[in-house]
Amino acid sequence: MARLNIGVMGAAGIAPRAMTGPSKHVKEVEVVAVASRDATKAKEFAKKHGVPRALGSYDELLRDPSVDAVYIPLPNSMHAAWSIKALRSGKHVLCEKPLASNADEARRMNAVAGETGLALVEAFHYRYHPVADQLKRIVNSGEIGEIMRAELRWKFDTSRSNIRFDYSLSGGALMDIGCYQIHLLRFLTGQEPLVTDASAERTSEQVDGAMVAHLHFPGGLDARIECSMISKELVQDLQLYGSKGELRCDSPFLPHAGGSIRILHDANKKRVKIDPTETYVYQLKAFAAAARGGTPAITGGDDAIRNMEAIDAIYRKAGLQPRGT
């Protein structure tokens, strides 16, 4: 498989962790350029992270014939426009989650990916780590019986000046971290949820600093998700309650950072071993396979549309507007 040359669109804080760092462990790819609207910032990023070329605009990156694919870690509100532009420029796209501001944007992005025949992948990196499939196998095995209830929490505190609190940039706790929780539940059940209730703690008129949502799945599972960027509590976990036992997973979305899976069955407890390899390494390998080998990505456009539909429904149920509307 030919090496995939990747350009980074935006010198964002997540880029070293999600792209330039992991690329050193994935022989199928090379990060060859970084672009920023601030040329000085691009040069500083390139020098610090060993990227060969620094470019002063996103358009310049898309015109570069040596770039096969782009990684887009821009603010959520910019995902759709630049992903579509990249696809129409002949570049495969790995775009940060959530893929779009809303489901309609995701549909447009997916349509262009279909027209161009290029890979459009949403960067739900956790899904490419073996722990996700481990959780699915445990659920399907019946080891804890029929899954009746699920609870997911992801809570932390961050500066209110963070762009994630900006509605014009499609911010909000549900967009930033709740999207993961919805995605995992959809994967584990293989079903799409009905939003039965949702309530937001607002940091501004339309922005959720925290969100609690209740979901019902056709197979009978009831789930509660809680996500917060304004909590003094630091927690990220999943609990599944079955007819024969319970499953508890710490750090399901960053399993390489202290993750664990414990199964409680009657008086017995079992701990499942977790691969310490970073999720981003697995994601980058999968992106290269999708772009070069034509292997369908498991977090492609169709999946992103369904995830965004659930996000939009939660916002409406909480009395907030879907982002980008």
Rank of each mutant, 00 (worst) to 15 (best):
A2C: 03
L4G: 05
I6Q: 00
V8C: 11
I14K: 12
A15I: 02
M19V: 15
P22A: 09
S23K: 05
V26S: 06
E28A: 15
V31H: 02
V34K: 05
V34C: 06
T40H: 08
K41N: 13
A42W: 00
F45G: 08
F45Q: 10
F45C: 10
H49S: 04
G50Q: 09
Y58N: 08
V67N: 02
Y71P: 08
S77E: 07
A80M: 14
A80P: 03
A81T: 12
W82E: 09
W82H: 13
W82I: 07
I84R: 08
S89R: 02
K91G: 00
H92M: 04
E96W: 04
E105I: 09
A106T: 10
R107E: 15
R108V: 09
M109K: 10
T116C: 08
G117F: 03
L118N: 05
A119K: 00
A119F: 01
F124G: 07
H125V: 11
Y126W: 14
L135D: 08
K136Q: 14
K136R: 15
K136E: 14
I138C: 00
I144Q: 11
E146I: 12
I147T: 08
R149T: 12
A150S: 13
E151H: 12
W154G: 04
F156E: 03
D157W: 05
R160G: 02
I163V: 13
S170R: 07
G172P: 10
I177A: 03
Y180F: 13
I182T: 12
H183R: 12
F187K: 12
E192C: 03
T196A: 12
T196S: 15
A198C: 07
S199R: 14
T203D: 04
V207Y: 00
A210F: 03
A210H: 06
M211F: 00
P218C: 07
G219F: 06
G220E: 10
G220H: 05
I225A: 10
C227L: 06
S228F: 00
S228W: 03
E233A: 12
D237I: 00
Q239S: 15
K244G: 01
K244E: 15
C249D: 06
P252G: 08
S260T: 14
I263A: 09
A267F: 09
N268K: 14
I274E: 00
T277L: 10
E278C: 03
K285Q: 14
A288K: 00
A290G: 14
G294M: 10
T299R: 07
G300Y: 01
A310S: 15
I314G: 10
A318Y: 09
Q321G: 02
Q321T: 09
R323I: 07
